[in-house]
């Protein structure tokens, strides 16, 4: 399990990185935490001519609050999602998701941007980003654009990032008064990719839930927004009936992959159970 040979460059700016990519005629891979790229090289699943290390680029780091949005640099490590007070206050689903992500040493090095750009359908942070209605800041030679998380995740391991573009930051809208969240997953072992996971965010008013946002993961090729379930909960207080209606709505929301080791019917069943549990345990964050 030794990687094929490649060249390596440590980029000092996003522009540097993108020009290195262009010079390599696209036969290049960006390296952030390396926790998806390096194993895939060791497995010889890919053999790029060039690895472009993004870790030294100042624009990709830092966590700051602007106009009601939290900007999280793409190189922010998983462990910061667990420990950073700004993330806990303004992007609480990342904090709630972080303990489920792999293991301590992986979290020390893995990055939020890397996790989102890799877009593993069983991974936690992408679903949290969708549920929080985050926006992804992408740099290209044409400039910078922001893509809503709903549009960012396109397919299995596929995002709105075009070849050569760099994911710079994640923008998360700050919680509003009455905001509640819930995150949970069912995995075989601690730190494993989820069999099924759920990230939920809503605003709890006296009259019921508003702005309900539900992202399920490991149920399709990318995080899946459960629109029918959201609708089933909107305007209602959380009670057994509301939860049952949301669970029932998943039948229409989900079309899970089918596999003898993991039949679609099992994923749907687990998604229902998990959503019920998450909804019954929503926590106020603002």
């Amino acid at each position: 399990m030794k990687s094929p040979a490649f060249e390596y460059v440590r980029a000092e700016s996003v522009a540097d990185a993108m020009s290195a990519y262009a010079e390599a005629d696209g036969d290049a891979v960006y390296l952030s935490g390396g926790h998806s790229v390096v194993p895939s090289l060791a497995l010889r699943l890919q053999a790029p001519a060039l690895l472009i290390d993004l870790s030294n680029i100042a624009a990709l780091s830092g966590i700051s609050l602007h106009d009601g949005w939290l900007r999280i640099g793409a190189m922010t490590r998983h462990v910061q999602a667990l420990k950073d007070p700004l993330i806990a206050a303004h992007a609480p689903l990342f904090t709630a998701a972080a303990p489920f992500v792999a293991h301590p040493a992986i979290r020390n090095r893995g990055t939020l941007g890397g996790s989102l750009a890799h877009a593993d359908p069983a991974s936690e942070f992408p679903a949290a980003a969708v549920a929080m209605r985050a926006e992804l800041e992408i740099a290209s030679s044409q400039g910078i654009r922001r893509v809503p998380a709903d549009d960012f995740f396109v397919d299995i391991y596929e995002t709105a990032i075009e070849p050569g573009e760099v994911l710079q930051a994640i923008h998360v809208p700050s919680p509003v008064a009455g905001q509640v969240i819930g995150f949970d997953e069912i995995a075989r072992r601690r730190g494993d990719y989820a069999m099924v996971g759920a990230a939920v965010q809503a605003v709890s008013r006296g009259s019921g839930l508003e702005d309900v946002s539900i992202a399920l993961f490991s149920v399709g090729n990318h995080p899946v927004r459960a629109r029918k379930a959201q609708a089933a909960l909107t305007g209602r207080m959380i009670d057994a009936d509301a939860i049952a209606d949301a669970q029932a709505a998943l039948e229409d929301d989900l079309d899970p992959p089918d596999d003898p080791q993991f039949p679609a019917s099992m994923r749907l069943h687990l998604a229902r159970v998990l959503l019920g549990r998450v909804l019954a345990n929503l926590e106020a964050v603002a």
Partner: peptide, 17 residues
């Protein structure tokens, strides 16, 4: 690595420069 536990198999030597 710089004070935190990491997998030496997932870090390239050049990254540790």
């Amino acid at each position: 690595l710089d004070g935190v536990a990491v997998h030496a198999c997932l870090v390239l030597a050049v990254q540790a420069d």
